[in-house]
């Protein structure tokens, strides 16, 4: 994944970059399966590797597919900032619990209750679904509203008055619009 990410950072052809982003997402999905998050992997494979690639390609079709090279001093400055931030973050991870540690703080609070009681309280075996839709119903309602708002926003930004179901305007109409 790191190799792909470096390639994304280096390439200037945006078309290749978008394709690599799709591959990156797919690798991410594979990693989620290894880490037991099957629901998440499912979503990532469908969304990251599918829909967002299509949307980015759509954007490239509407704009341009070549990127200008960034000025050299800016790249060096960015590298310095990134390395410093990364060093701080790595220093921060030294306090984190080890990978897979069952005694980590995250596993002590509400998760045991969800795992232990949801079978009896909700009665469905997929704990992810029961948390998503029931225990955390408010959160999911909020997320649904966010998606709704995003779609409405895209419509507001790009969906300028063109009647429903009509395809491209005719050539004559476009010429009229240009005059």
């Amino acid at each position: 994944m790191i190799v792909v990410a470096v390639a994304i950072a280096r390439l200037h052809n945006l078309f290749a970059v978008v394709m690599l982003t799709g591959i990156f997402s797919l690798l991410g999905a594979a990693a989620y399966v290894v880490l037991d998050a099957v629901d998440v992997a499912f979503t990532e494979a469908a969304v990251g590797a599918g829909i967002s690639t299509v949307l980015m390609l759509g954007t490239l079709a509407l704009t341009t597919s070549e990127e200008r090279t960034a000025p050299r001093d800016r790249v060096i400055l960015a590298l310095v900032v990134v390395v410093l931030t990364g060093a701080v973050l790595v220093y921060g991870t030294l306090d984190m619990p080890f990978y897979g540690d069952p005694m980590a703080a995250i596993h002590q609070h509400v998760a045991p209750r969800y795992l232990g009681a949801s079978g009896a309280e909700i009665g469905i075996p997929n704990v992810v679904t029961s948390i998503l839709a029931s225990y955390r119903g408010y959160d999911t309602l909020g997320e649904t509203f966010v998606i709704f708002t995003a779609a409405a926003g895209v419509l507001a930004i790009l969906g300028r008055a063109r009647g429903p179901g009509t395809s491209k305007p005719t050539k004559a109409e476009r010429e009229d619009a240009e005059v």
Binding site: V38, D39, F42, N126, L132
Partner: peptide, 8 residues
């Protein structure tokens, strides 16, 4: 979605 991975 209730029984295996999946959902809305």
């Amino acid at each position: 979605g209730d029984f295996g991975p999946g959902g809305g």
